[in-house]
Design a protein around this nucleic acid. Structure first.
Length: 165
RNA sequence: ACUGCAUGUUGCCUUAUCGCUGCCCGCAAGACGGGGAGAGGAAAGUCCGGACAACACAGAGUACCGUACCACCUAACGGGUGGGUGUUUUAGCAAUAAAGCAACAGAUUAGUGCCGCAGAGAAUAACUACCGCCUUGCAAAAGGCGGAAAAGGUGAAAACGUGUGGUAAGAGCGCACGGGUUGCCGUAGCAAUAUGGCAGCCGGGUAAACCUUACGGGUUGAAAGCCCAUGUAUACUUGCGGAUGAAGGCGGCUCGCCUGAUUUUUCCUUUCGGGGAAAUACGCAAGGGGGUUGGGUGCUAAAGGGGGCGAGUGAUUGCCACCUCAGAUAAAUGAUAGGGGUUUUGCGCAAGCAGAAUUACAGAAUCCGGCUUACAGACAUGCAGUACUU
RNA sequence: GGUCGGAUGGCCGAGUGGCUAGGCAGAGCUCUGCAAAAGCUCGUACAGCGGUUCGAAUCCGCUUUCGACCU
């Protein structure tokens, strides 16, 4: 165990990085180019995982509703270098079987992955970070093309961040 | 050959691009690069049984819950295998055979309850009809007392069946044959049980009604539990501190500035005063319990896998060498395109051509052994039916 | 992931093995000059499949579906 783990100081540094929520965004941009971050990837740090933030998102976030999709968003500083973190859900009421829910969430993820670069440019221009939750309210598993078309419209509806917010 | 049913096996393959999650290696240590791995037969239902963990625990009994033909298998089981018994279907005149099914201990020696409607009566049964005696009456008959479960009808179920003797009429009341059941003995079998003999009994059903007998069961489940960090107010315990400044804050930090915490009792000495002890308030440190938010561990090498050689009718098991095969946590295992395979539709004598679909049930969450339920297509075996050929 | 409970007419809801109560709602009739209220009458139910039993809403098993609790 001792051999495996990193030296103590490095561990500390890593933790700082996670716990630090406030950071200077301008320095971030100088270190990591937005262009470099906007490949068609969707890794661990681009997904919204903090239950605290998710609670906050559902409580205070604004919603864009479009054709059975609901897109919740909240401009909020993140513990990630990426301009956005997203999460995807389908309700247990509409999809009783686990494999149906999984496949819907995979479709949403796939669609978001392809729409991501433009969304990131839009955010980088404002120098803002955002938390997003995409919910599918339909009762049947949709096709990928359908999801992409609707999501693209929904994302374009997200307004520019207010200075006060 | 086709169709149906049952059981078992299987549950599309491959190339490229864009991704996801662990692991290993590299490096400039990054959220980078490379390599290799990554979804089931039911992962499901959570119906049983274990492993593992925490807590509890003298012993015995009671309550409660579960199991229930016998033997074996197994870590264990309500599971499985083999056997027995009963029963259903099919074939057959029958004997019997084959296939399927069974929560299959006890209701004639523990006891209690329940059995609607109908029927005289549903458990010490007399309504009709039957028989005897008595009373009334010319008689027919009526009434009363008693006998009697053979006949009737009712019902899911009516007091062993047939025959015969017997009787006032009848009755297992006696006898013969037969049936069931309990006990003992003989034979076969480890046993359930089968079979033969002897003796007793035969006034119902229901235990997935209470119950009896035998056996088993401590409770709670990985959101168990253990560790680390973050960090807030602090009950309580211990230690230390002190206006000759504890402790905290700021700065230019061996220093300066600012803020700033206690009283009582008692003893010794005594001019004021000083010192000690105890209690208490305050402060600090440690322990500690309470709450908050994360991470690690538990956690994937196991009652493991397929293979070979044995043991056993079989479930299962012994030995040998080989293999390492998911580990996520707002929860990975995906998407697109091409090729092949499969199914299907149309055209065609056929070869083949063209189109469509690629589909079933379904997604690991601590891990195993079962059971149950769902399931497109393919293959194998068995049974049944239909048609044709010999 | 784990542990429990329910399902009876259009709605609520009782029912310890023997014809499934009751209320609300609905339809018809009475009453009234017409209505309301009241009274009378009627129709419509045991989630599904299988088993135990002479007989199942009830007992047992499986399935479907709704809900609750545990961090």
């Amino acid at each position: 165990m001792a051999e495996k783990s990193l030296p103590a100081e490095e561990q500390g540094a890593e933790k700082n990085l996670q716990y630090q929520t406030r950071r200077d965004l301008s320095s971030l941009n100088s270190a990591f180019d937005v262009e470099k971050l906007s490949g068609f990837t969707l890794g661990k740090f681009e997904r919204l995982k903090s239950s605290v933030l998710i609670d906050k998102l559902f409580k205070e976030g604004k919603a864009v509703k479009l054709h059975g999709f609901t897109l919740l968003y909240l401009y909020h500083p993140l513990s990630s270098f990426y301009p956005a973190q997203a999460t995807f859900t389908a309700s247990k009421r509409n999809f009783r079987h686990a494999h149906d829910r999984n496949s819907v969430k995979r479709l949403l993820r796939e669609a978001y992955r392809h729409l991501k670069p433009e969304f990131y440019k839009f955010l980088a221009a404002q120098n803002q970070q955002i938390a997003v939750c995409i919910i599918y309210n339909g009762r049947e598993v949709p096709t990928l093309a359908e999801v992409q078309r609707t999501l693209e419209k929904a994302i374009k509806k997200i307004p520019v961040a207010q200075a006060a917010a």
